[in-house]
Computed example of a mutant assay.
Amino acid sequence: MFDIGFWELILIAIIGLVVLGPERLPVAIRTVKSWINSVKRFSDGVKTELNEELRIQELHQNLKKAEQANMENLAPDVAKSVESLQEAAQMVNQPYAKKPASDSSDNSESSDDKPAK
């Protein structure tokens, strides 16, 4: 990224020490470090979002190809994309599926479940 060698870093540290003084230099270094970390996190987030958008676009194109081929004799990458989309659809629908009846085989209420008279 930057072509800064060891001697350049030493020179920057000495200038920083002279300008800021020994009391404020550690605080300034921590502040610059936090800025750099926040920029890195932001760039990683943007990179992740872009990769996900590209993946979604690719899946969308493969789904169009599969629809045009009437979901028969699909290429392996297109079939994989369709399979991935089907799994995602099942995961989305799963929370809304009806839950099965209770696991207990008897329907009688225990004495704790009965309301007090």
Results as ranks from 00 to 15, higher is better:
residue 48 T to G: 10
residue 105 S to Y: 02
residue 81 S to Y: 00
residue 115 P to Q: 01
residue 106 D to R: 08
residue 11 L to S: 13
residue 31 T to F: 15
residue 78 V to L: 03
residue 56 I to S: 12
residue 69 A to R: 11
residue 81 S to L: 01
residue 54 L to Y: 12
residue 33 K to L: 11
residue 37 N to L: 12
residue 52 E to D: 15
residue 51 N to G: 12
residue 88 A to Q: 02
residue 8 E to V: 02
residue 108 S to E: 01
residue 111 S to G: 05
residue 22 P to M: 09
residue 8 E to K: 09
residue 79 A to C: 00
residue 11 L to C: 12
residue 24 R to E: 15
residue 58 E to I: 14
residue 111 S to T: 07
residue 87 E to I: 00
residue 8 E to L: 04
residue 72 E to R: 14
residue 51 N to T: 14
residue 30 R to H: 10
residue 73 N to H: 14
residue 107 N to D: 06
residue 98 K to P: 07
residue 74 L to Q: 05
residue 79 A to G: 06
residue 89 A to E: 02
residue 26 P to N: 13
residue 101 A to R: 08
residue 87 E to C: 06
residue 61 Q to D: 15
residue 9 L to N: 05
residue 23 E to K: 12
residue 65 K to E: 13
residue 14 I to F: 10
residue 8 E to F: 06
residue 29 I to N: 06
residue 93 N to L: 08
residue 16 G to T: 04
residue 10 I to F: 02
residue 86 Q to N: 10
residue 10 I to L: 06
residue 53 E to S: 11
residue 4 I to L: 11
residue 69 A to S: 13
residue 39 V to T: 07
residue 8 E to C: 03
residue 84 S to M: 01
residue 17 L to V: 06
residue 26 P to T: 09
residue 25 L to H: 12
residue 115 P to M: 00
residue 31 T to N: 13
residue 78 V to T: 02
residue 19 V to G: 06
residue 89 A to S: 07
residue 72 E to K: 14
residue 19 V to H: 03
residue 77 D to G: 07
residue 54 L to C: 13
residue 37 N to V: 12
residue 64 K to T: 15
residue 116 A to P: 00
residue 84 S to V: 07
residue 92 V to T: 01
residue 19 V to D: 07
